[in-house]
């Protein structure tokens, strides 16, 4: 009895402590609440199994330890059909319970609310950023210094269409208890969709959850859930705030630069005259958005979609050597801008 207590009590405490530590975040979506409840059920069953089995192991180690010098063999039990049948039945029952509740919860998670119109937002994932495109044509692409924000109306169904512009990614918001892979299926089928209804206003961290190469760890975003009125205002501001692409014919000098496949510039060095404005005609021949920035002057040109081009007007610079980069891919796309007489 004492050995049982000695073993059992710490084990139960450890089990409870472990279980208490093992919880998802408080869910902020409707479906997330059902997932959380399913998890609690599974965790409860797991705790019972854990305490039972680990408890028995500890008990056996203390209770059945061979005393030194004891050479008598214990009873050589080979099996027992009844017992074996019982302990085949028990896991079978547990498994069925888990499966049934999983399927029920899955039905809830996958359900689309057909009555209410869902707010549809296109999500473009590419190495290693996100672009969010809204129904009114507004869009936002993130950058390493500017985490992209996915604005959604709180309390209303939202439907995301997940497009990959290159490799596999995944859209994951831990506090929603939801993720979905973002895959370019080619011609085989349409893009994945993810539907949810956020239950609480707030800002929620999100991140790419499918390894996508070098800067996978940096591919973060935020979801901001706000009341409908605020949401509409936000979209309007975003749409009108987008500056028109700069095109300026007042350039005496125009440098041609392009972005090419696999996240590179087509030139490592470019030259510009000192002391006068000049233009960079930038064409994006890659499959993901790029732009041009100049590190030392903080010049950050607008993003250019694949296949598009833009002419940047660069204000006059002093002679010297500068670094030009793509601000979306600053490590991979770097070059030297020599400004001279």
């Amino acid at each position: 009895m004492r050995s049982t207590l000695r073993v059992g009590l710490p084990l139960v405490l450890a089990g409870l402590f472990a279980a208490g530590c093992m919880l998802p975040p408080v869910p902020k979506t409707e479906a997330g609440q059902d997932v959380f409840n399913l998890y609690l059920l599974v965790l409860g069953l797991a705790a019972i199994v854990f305490i039972g089995v680990e408890g028995f192991i500890l008990y056996a180690v203390f209770r059945y330890r061979r005393k030194p010098g004891d050479d008598v063999l214990p009873e050589q039990l080979h099996g027992n059909n009844t017992v074996e049948l019982i302990w085949t039945a028990i896991p079978t029952v547990i498994v069925f319970i888990l499966f049934v509740f999983s399927m029920i919860t899955l039905g809830v998670v996958e359900a689309r609310d057909e009555q209410q119109e869902a707010t549809t937002i296109e999500v473009d994932a590419f190495t290693w950023q996100w672009t969010f495109r809204y129904e009114n044509g507004a869009s936002q692409t993130g950058s390493p210094t500017n985490t992209p924000v996915l604005a959604v109306p709180v309390g209303e169904p939202v439907r995301l269409i997940l497009n990959s512009l290159d490799v596999n990614h995944a859209f994951y918001v831990p506090e929603f208890l939801l993720k979905r892979d973002v895959v370019d299926f080619g011609d085989a089928r349409g893009p994945n969709e993810l539907a949810f209804t956020v239950t609480e206003e707030g800002t929620y961290a999100g991140q790419c959850a499918e390894f996508c190469g070098l800067a996978h760890a940096d591919m973060i975003f935020e979801v901001q859930a706000m009341p409908r009125g605020e949401f509409d205002a936000y979209l309007e501001a975003l749409a009108s705030g987008e500056p028109p692409p700069t095109g300026d014919e007042d350039c005496e000098t125009t440098i041609e630069l392009a972005a090419v496949e696999s996240i590179q510039f087509d030139a490592d060095t470019i030259q510009a005259p000192a002391g006068q404005d000049f233009c960079i005609e930038f064409t994006n021949n890659d499959i993901v958005p790029h732009d041009v920035g100049i590190v030392e002057t903080d010049f950050d040109g607008d993003d250019v979609a694949p296949g598009e081009s833009i002419t940047y007007l660069i204000p006059a610079m002093d002679a010297g050597e500068y670094q030009f980069i793509c601000t979306l891919h600053p490590q991979a796309m770097v070059g030297v801008l020599t400004v001279g007489e």
Partner: peptide, 18 residues
């Protein structure tokens, strides 16, 4: 035990790739 948790798609949707 964690494997059985992963076998449940709704739970897996949260913890896959984590």
């Amino acid at each position: 035990i964690s494997g059985v948790m992963l076998a449940s798609p709704p739970i897996d949707f949260h913890v896959q790739d984590t």
